[in-house]
Write a protein that binds this DNA or RNA. Structure first.
Ligand SMILES: Nc1ccn([C@H]2C[C@H](O)[C@@H](COP(=O)(O)OP(=O)(O)OP(=O)(O)O)O2)c(=O)n1
Ligand SMILES: [Mg+2]
Ligand SMILES: [Mg+2]
Length: 646
DNA sequence: GCGGATCAC
DNA sequence: TATGGTGATCCGC
């Protein structure tokens, strides 16, 4: 039975309820039936109501985008714009670098297969790992539609024989470390991107051993299996984005080698769902679909509209995905890339102030412990809370001094929480940003030459230190044996300095990317770093109705007065010259004609400045490539409340 | 600097 | 009955 036809459910809501992890490896037989069961099980819950609201908001946002599109294309000569975009494509094509062999490795059903090592009798059975929410499922369970992020009670409905296992993070860390250690034999620059995946640039290794990429990757995968009894899949391609997409192609326990050829790559991308592109999630998938873009190839078809709506969609990002162009710089995570550290906890909704403060205190203690053992202090504290309606809010406060003590974390959290009361919350969290590294080897600038930085420093001045002070006093630095490693993957902390080349080579997309890239330029031929790509633009048409404050009731959220779209003079930014425009159609068209007629293109690209936020938006590269894997937080397995049986 | 959103794993 | 935790980034204010 069709869940949409048989009720007032919309297609988008049914799909949303099915979760973000659909379309992953391990196909299911009848997704419609699965979605029906999920929607059925969800209906009426607070979670469901919240999802429904989010879906409605998104639908409205799409309506605004379509309206904008209608206005933008009215009377415009699309052919002319297409020609212009074709020129941009030629420039982008020149960024293409096929010289490096990049491989992305991703462990198969990672948590599940690690569990299998400890309990082989589960082999071949449908089982999942997690708690109330499933972290991952065995491939047998996936056939039933069980997947990451799904609540266990729904998974049970989909697969009554499903075996639910609790997590053992120490085990996953252990295996993860083993695997990464193996991978580093083939390229010490391994870029870990999560606990179960990472990138290698095997170009030098291939040369030295006179191997083909396929042979080499088979060998690596064989070795991983031999030494861990775990299977891994891999993708071989000229850059990280493509390699990641490819590693999914022959999952599980397979590999895929993309031809290193411009046309072959474009063909490959042509049919590919845009949702497969790292950075395009459920929301952006829907937004793009609304303007006809479902595959990467559709980007080309709709290039004129995407050009006109560059602010909403990010033309250059999309063109790169269409072309299959992305960064190929593989480098390890560095400790100083960390931006925040936090802890949060979900519990049955609480309304009493005392109960909430108790939770806050627990979270503060846990955060203190983590900050202490990993060697960080920070000066901005952010409280996060989720109402029993599932609406999430954050409240932040920046301080003049460094904090990491539970008493102060708790005090600040309390201060941030009180104005929100009374309310009923199901989650409380604390996060600290503006970090300072207590383990940094002396002040930045001078790097240490030898040995792991022992904490030295005396300090111990207690109490608030001025943040201007460069040396980290305060925050007793007294961990020693406890260590258990820090939050950085073992390996090298700092390979060496190397000159930092501040001159970005970016054509136009400016911005960050590799401010610091220690190893890359040691190589004689530094891999081309394509500026990157970013979904960035979260298509914000100005009108995220600010929703009501947390204390207000859920349904009451009325779009606040003005600020909403519809105001006839939307401002646009001309993607050619970056000039701000008023979207009066005639003037917009005239302007575009003008820009197209003069050969302003090169000039614009050369001079593009920060003014242009959209195109700029840095590089999502980081999201899937530069992210180091910080060890999974080990926490004692939660007390198993034995179910009944008594 | 803050808060909401989106995304990945 | 019942929908996780950690960290990053981007955008508009
Ligand atoms: N929402 C999620 C997604 C993943 N994970 C954890 C469990 C996974 O085992 C691990 C790796 O994530 P993957 O996306 O690589 O998924 P799997 O390795 O489980 O399966 P696949 O074979 O598809 O890679 O991260 C999680 O806890 N919560
Ligand atoms: Mg995996
Ligand atoms: Mg993975």
């Amino acid at each position: 039975m069709d869940p949409v036809a048989s009720s007032q459910l919309t297609e988008s809501l049914v799909k949303r309820l099915a979760g973000p992890s659909t379309g992953k490896a391990g196909l299911a037989k009848d997704q419609t039936e699965i979605n029906r069961i999920i929607a059925e099980a969800s209906k009426g819950s607070k979670f469901y109501e919240n999802e429904k609201k989010k879906d409605k908001d998104l639908t409205e946002r799409i309506a605004r985008i379509l309206k904008l599109r209608g206005e933008a294309i009215e009377g415009v000569d699309l052919t002319k714009i297409e020609h212009h975009v074709d020129k941009i494509i030629i420039d982008l094509e020149n960024e293409r670098d096929l010289s490096q062999v990049i491989v992305h490795f991703d462990m198969d059903a990672f948590f599940a297969n690690v569990e299998l090592l400890h309990n082989p009798t589960l082999k071949g059975k449908p089982f999942s790992v997690g708690g109330g929410v499933i972290s991952t499922a065995s491939y047998e369970a996936r056939k039933y539609g069980v997947r990451s992020g799904m609540p266990s009670f729904i998974a049970k409905k989909l697969c009554p024989e499903l075996i639910l296992l609790r997590s053992h993070f120490e085990w996953y860390n252990e295996e993860s470390n083993k695997v990464f250690t193996i991978l580093r034999r083939y390229d010490p620059r391994l870029s870990a991107a999560g606990c179960d995946e990472g990138y290698l640039n095997i170009t030098p290794y291939l040369q030295k051993h006179n191997l083909t990429p396929g042979e080499c990757v088979e060998e690596i995968r064989r070795t991983v299996h031999a030494e861990t009894n775990l299977t891994v899949s891999a993708g071989i391609a000229p850059n990280m984005m493509l390699a990641k997409i490819c590693s999914d192609k022959n999952k599980p326990n397979g590999q895929y080698h993309l031809a290193f050829d411009s046309k072959a790559i474009i063909d490959f991308m042509g049919d590919l769902s845009i949702r497969k592109v790292p950075g395009i999630g459920r929301v952006n998938e829907r937004l793009l679909e609304s303007v006809g873009v479902k595959t990467c190839g559709d980007v080309y078809t709709h290039r004129a509209v995407l050009y006109l709506m560059d602010k909403q969609f990010g033309l250059r990002f999309l063109l790169r995905t269409y072309l299959g162009i992305a960064s190929n710089e593989v480098k390890p995570y560095e400790r100083n890339e960390r931006k925040s550290i936090g802890a949060e906890r979900t519990f049955p909704p609480l309304s009493s102030t005392k109960d909430m403060l108790d939770k806050l205190e627990e979270v503060a203690a846990e955060l203190e412990s983590d900050m202490e053992s990993s060697g960080w202090i920070g000066r901005t504290v952010t409280l996060k809370f989720k109402l029993d309606t599932f609406q999430v809010f954050t409240r932040a406060k920046s301080l003049n001094h460094w904090v990491n003590k539970k008493e102060e974390l708790f005090a600040v959290g309390k201060e941030l929480l009180f104005p929100e009361l009374p309310t009923s919350v199901r989650l409380i969290g604390l996060r600290v940003t503006k970090l300072k590294d207590l383990k940094a080897s002396t002040s930045e600038g001078i790097k240490r030459f030898f040995g792991p930085a022992q904490q030295a420093t005396s300090g111990s001045k207690r109490k608030a230190s001025d943040i201007d002070e460069d040396e980290a006093d305060d925050a007793s630095v007294d961990q020693e044996e406890h260590d258990s490693d820090d939050d950085v993957m073992p390996g090298f902390h700092e390979q060496d300095e190397a000159d930092i080349d501040p001159s970005q080579h970016d054509v136009d997309d400016d911005e960050e990317l590799q401010i610091i890239q220690p190893l890359a330029n040691i190589r004689k031929r530094p891999p081309n770093s394509v500026p990157g790509t970013s979904i960035s633009h979260q298509l914000t048409l100005r009108s995220r109705s600010k929703s009501a404050g947390p204390s207000r009731s859920h349904g009451a959220a009325i779009a606040e007065p003005s600020t909403t779209t519809s105001t006839p003079s939307e401002t646009h930014t001309c993607p050619i010259c970056n000039e701000a425009l008023t979207s009066n159609n005639t003037s917009l068209n005239e302007h575009i004609d003008y820009c197209l007629s003069r050969d302003a293109i090169k000039q614009a690209q050369g001079t593009s400045t920060k003014g242009n936020k959209v195109l700029s938006s840095g590089d999502t590269t980081k999201e899937y490539a530069l992210n180091g894997f910080k060890r999974l937080k080990l926490r004692p397995d939660p007390p198993v409340k034995s179910k009944r049986k008594g």
